[in-house]
C-alpha cells in the first residue's frame, strides 16, 4: 500500500538489502527460514521423481523411471477392466436370446445396438459404408428396400449365411445375362429397361418402346420379379417399381444390368463372428430405420 499520508517521505525504520539500482533500493523483509527449506525439499523431491517416474526426453524415447508408470498403460488397464465386466454381464445373454427376445428387452436391446454398431464398423463398413448407406452394387441398409427380406430374422439369416457366398445355406438366385447370352437383342434390352424405369416414373432410353418393353418383361422377367415387378425376396429379385436402384437408375446402367446380369456376393459370417455379435448386427441393422 502506498503511503497516502506522507507522499515523498520514505517510511521510517525498515532496513534495505544494500542493493541499489538507479537509486531504487530494496527493503529487506526476510522470508521465514522454513520457506527456504521448502525450496530445498522440492529440489530433493524432483530428484526422487526423476528416478521413479518418466522424466527426461532422450534422442529416441525418454527415461521411463524405476516404477515403470505410464498414463497410457493405466488407461488401457481401465478400458480392459470395463470390457471384461461388460462381457461377463451381457454377451452371454445376447448369445442365448433370440433376436425377437433381444428386441423385447430394453436393456438387452441397448447392449445389442451398441455391440452391433461396433461390429458393423469393424466388419461391414468396408462394403456398406460407415453409415450403412451402401454404394453402387452394395445395398443401402438404411432404407426399407430389402433384397432378401427386412425382418430381423431375415436379416440375421442373410448375415449368417450370406448371399451367393458358397455356404450351403446361402441365398441363391442370379440375374441372368440376357444380352451377353444372346437371349435378348439390343432393341429389346433397351425397351425392357425403359419399361421398368417407367414403373417408377423415370425416363428411359430415348426412342425405345415402353409397350414392347412390357411384352419382353412379361416373357422374360416376370418369373422372378413378378407380374407387377414388385420383386421376390425368396430369389433376391428386387422390386423394380420403387426409386431405389442398387446398380444405378440411369438408362444405360439398367441396360448394362439386363445385358450382363448381376450376382453381387454377401459373405457368410457364421464361424467368423460369434452368435451374439451376429444377432447384435441383425438388431442394429434392423434398427437403422428400414427394418420391416
Amino acid at each position: 500500500m502506498a503511503d497516502t499520508a506522507n507522499p515523498g517521505k520514505p517510511p521510517a525504520g525498515p532496513e534495505t538489502t544494500g542493493h541499489e539500482w538507479d537509486g531504487i533500493r530494496e527493503y529487506n523483509n526476510p522470508l521465514p527460514r522454513w520457506w527456504l527449506y521448502g525450496l530445498y525439499a522440492t529440489i530433493v523431491w524432483s530428484f526422487g521423481y526423476w528416478v521413479l517416474y518418466p522424466a527426461w526426453p532422450l534422442v529416441s524415447g525418454y527415461t521411463s523411471g524405476l516404477l515403470g508408470y505410464s498414463q497410457r498403460a493405466t488407461v488401457l488397464d481401465e478400458v480392459e477392466a470395463v470390457r471384461r465386466e461388460r462381457d461377463a454381464r451381457g454377451q452371454a445373454q445376447l448369445a442365448s436370446a433370440t433376436v425377437a427376445e433381444i428386441r423385447a428387452d430394453p436393456a438387452l436391446l441397448r447392449l445389442a445396438l451398441a455391440t452391433g454398431k461396433a461390429a458393423f464398423g469393424d466388419n461391414c463398413a468396408a462394403c456398406h459404408g460407415t453409415s450403412a448407406t451402401g454404394r453402387i452394387g452394395y445395398p443401402n441398409l438404411q432404407d426399407d428396400d430389402w433384397l432378401w427380406g427386412g425382418t430381423p430374422e431375415a436379416i440375421e439369416q442373410t448375415i449368417r449365411f450370406g448371399a451367393r457366398s458358397g455356404h450351403g445355406e446361402a441365398h441363391l438366385g442370379d440375374m441372368p445375362a440376357f444380352g451377353r447370352d444372346g437371349v435378348l437383342k439390343r432393341q429389346e434390352l433397351e425397351a425392357v429397361a425403359t419399361y421398368v424405369l417407367s414403373l417408377s416414373g423415370m425416363p428411359g432410353v430415348a426412342g425405345a418402346s415402353v409397350e414392347k418393353g412390357a411384352e419382353v418383361f412379361a416373357g422374360n422377367c416376370a418369373a422372378c420379379h413378378g407380374e407387377a415387378a414388385k420383386g421376390n425376396p425368396e430369389m433376391g429379385a428386387p422390386n423394380l417399381t420403387d426409386p431405389i436402384w442398387l446398380y444405378g437408375s440411369a438408362p444405360d446402367q439398367v441396360v448394362a444390368t439386363v445385358t450382363n446380369g448381376r450376382k453381387g456376393m454377401m459373405p457368410a459370417w457364421e464361424g467368423r463372428l460369434d452368435p451374439a455379435t451376429i444377432k447384435s448386427l441383425a438388431v442394429f441393422v434392423h434398427g437403422l430405420g428400414g427394418g420391416k
Binding site: G18, N28, P30, L31, P32, R33
Partner: peptide, 16 residues
C-alpha cells in the same frame, strides 16, 4: 525483530 537487523548484514532469511 525484523527492524532490528542491520542494513547490509541482514540475512534474506530469518527464523520466525
Amino acid at each position: 525483530t525484523r527492524t532490528a537487523i542491520p542494513a547490509v548484514n541482514g540475512s534474506l532469511y530469518a527464523a520466525r
